[in-house]
Computed example of a mutant assay.
Amino acid sequence: MPTLAANATRMPRSGIRAVMDVAWTIPDVIGLHVGEPSFVTPDHVLDGARLALDRHETRYVPNAGILPLREAIAAKVATHNGITASPGQVVVSAGGMQALYLALAASVSRGDEVLVPDPGWPNFAMAVQLLQARPVRYPLRPENGFQPDPADLDRLVTARTRAMIVNSPSNPLGTVLTPAHAEALCRFADAYDLWLISDECYDAITFDVPHVSPAAWDEAGRVLSCFSFSKTYAMTGMRVGYLVAPPKVAAVTSIMQEPLLSCVNAPAQRAALAALSGGGDFVELMRRTYQERRDKAAALLDEAGIGYHLPHGAFYLWLDVRDRCGGDVTDWALRLLNAEHVAVAPGTAFGPAGAGWARVCLATKDAALLEGLRRLVEFRD
Rank of each mutant, 00 (worst) to 15 (best):
P42V: 03
A49G: 10
A49W: 01
S107H: 11
H56Q: 14
Y60S: 13
D152K: 01
A52T: 09
H80G: 04
D152Y: 01
L153V: 15
A94F: 04
A106K: 00
M126G: 05
S107W: 07
P139F: 06
A125D: 13
Q98V: 14
L153Q: 06
N81C: 15
L100S: 08
P148R: 09
D54E: 13
S93F: 06
P135K: 08
G95C: 13
A127H: 12
Q129L: 12
V116N: 03
V90Q: 09
L130R: 07
A105E: 13
V45F: 01
G88C: 08
P135D: 09
G35W: 00
V40E: 15
I73E: 02
L32P: 01
D152T: 06
D47M: 09
E36A: 11
L53R: 11
H80L: 15
D154M: 01
T79D: 11
D47T: 12
D54K: 10
P135R: 06
H44K: 05
N123V: 12
Y101R: 10
K76C: 13
P150S: 12
Q129T: 13
H33K: 03
R70G: 04
Q89K: 05
T84I: 14
P62F: 03
G111P: 09
R70S: 07
A106H: 07
T41K: 03
D152A: 09
L115D: 01
A99F: 04
L130N: 05
A94N: 12
N123L: 14
P68D: 02
D47W: 01
A103F: 03
A49R: 11
R141N: 13
T158D: 11
V40G: 04
S93A: 15
